[in-house]
Simulated assay, not measured.
Amino acid sequence: MLDIDRIRAISLDLDDTLWPVLPTLKAAEAAQHRFLSEHAPATAALLQDKVVAGAIRQSVRDDFVHKAHDMTHFRQQFIRRALLQAGEDEALVEPTFAQFYAARNQVTWFAEVEDSLAWLSARYPLVAVSNGNARLDWVGLAPWFAACASAHEVGVAKPHVGIFTAASQAIAVPLAAFLHVGDDAALDVEGALACGMQAAWVQRQELDYHQAAASATHLQWPLASQAPQAMVRDLAELCLLLGRPDR
Rank of each mutant, 00 (worst) to 15 (best):
A42Q: 15
A42E: 10
A42W: 12
T43P: 07
T43D: 05
L47W: 02
L47M: 01
Q48H: 10
Q48T: 02
D49F: 04
V51R: 15
V52E: 11
A53L: 14
A53T: 09
A53Y: 13
I56Y: 07
R57N: 08
Q58N: 12
S59N: 15
V60K: 03
V60F: 03
V60G: 04
R61C: 07
D62R: 14
D63G: 13
F64D: 11
V65F: 01
V65K: 15
K67I: 01
K67F: 10
H69I: 13
D70I: 13
M71C: 03
M71K: 15
T72D: 07
F74C: 06
Q76N: 04
Q76S: 06
Q76L: 06
F78G: 00
I79W: 11
R80V: 00
A86Q: 10
D89A: 13
E90D: 08
E90N: 11
A91M: 08
L92E: 08
V93F: 04
V93K: 14
E94F: 04
P95H: 14
F97A: 03
F97C: 03
A98Y: 10
A98D: 13
Q99G: 01
F100D: 04
F100L: 13
A102G: 06
A103P: 11
R104L: 15
R104A: 02
R104H: 14
Q106E: 09
V107W: 02
T108D: 03
W109E: 05
A111C: 07
E112D: 10
V113G: 07
D115E: 14
D115H: 08
L117G: 02
A118P: 02
A118I: 09
L120H: 02
A122M: 08
A122V: 00
A122N: 06
A122Y: 07
R123I: 00
Y124F: 12
Y124I: 06
Y124A: 04
Y124V: 02
P125Y: 12
L126W: 08
V127L: 13
A128D: 02
V129F: 03
V129P: 08
S130Y: 01
N131F: 09
A134C: 12
L136G: 04
L136V: 09
D137W: 15
W138Q: 15
W138A: 15
G140E: 03
L141N: 09
L141S: 11
P143N: 08
P143F: 00
F145Q: 12
F145N: 13
A146L: 07
A146C: 03
A147L: 11
C148K: 12
A149C: 10
S150N: 01
A151Q: 04
A151M: 09
A151D: 01
A151N: 00
H152T: 14
H152K: 12
H152R: 11
G155H: 05
G155N: 07
K158Q: 01
P159A: 03
H160D: 04
H160S: 06
V161Q: 14
V161G: 07
V161N: 14
I163P: 12
I163L: 11
T165W: 10
A167W: 02
S168E: 05
S168L: 05
A170L: 05
A172F: 00
V173S: 06
V173P: 10
P174Y: 00
A176C: 11
A177E: 09
L179S: 06
L179G: 10
L179R: 05
H180S: 12
H180K: 05
V181H: 01
D183G: 02
